[in-house]
Simulated scan of single mutants.
Amino acid sequence: MIIISLLLLGSLLPHLSFSASVNVGIVNGTEARPHSRPYMVSIQQYGRHKCGGFLISDQFVITAAHCREGTGTLTVVAGAHNLRDTKSVRIGVSSYVKHPSYKPVPEEAKPGDIMILKLEKKVELNSNIKKILIPTAPGEIKKGTDCSVAGWGRLDTNAALSPKLMEADVKVRLNADCARLWARLYVASEMMCTHGHGGSCDGDSGGPLVCGNTAVGVTSFGCKDKCNDPNLPEVYTKISAFLPWIHNVTNSYN
Rank of each mutant, 00 (worst) to 15 (best):
I4H: 11
L9P: 00
L9E: 04
G10F: 06
P14F: 02
S21M: 09
S21D: 12
N23M: 12
I26F: 03
G29P: 02
G29V: 08
R33V: 15
P38Q: 06
S42P: 06
S42N: 07
G52L: 11
L55H: 01
I56N: 03
S57I: 05
C67D: 05
G70D: 10
T71F: 15
V77D: 09
A80S: 11
L83F: 11
T86L: 15
R90I: 12
P100R: 02
V105R: 05
K110F: 14
D113W: 05
I116S: 00
K121M: 14
I129N: 06
I132K: 05
L133Y: 11
I134R: 06
P135L: 15
G139S: 02
K143D: 14
T145L: 07
S148P: 10
G151V: 08
W152A: 07
L155M: 12
L155Q: 10
L155V: 10
P163H: 01
K164C: 10
M166S: 06
N175E: 12
C178I: 13
Y186W: 11
E190Y: 08
E190R: 07
C193S: 04
H195P: 01
D204P: 02
D204H: 02
V210G: 08
K224L: 13
D225L: 09
D225E: 13
K226L: 11
N228I: 06
D229G: 03
D229H: 04
P233D: 04
F242T: 00
F242N: 00
P244Q: 02
S252Y: 05
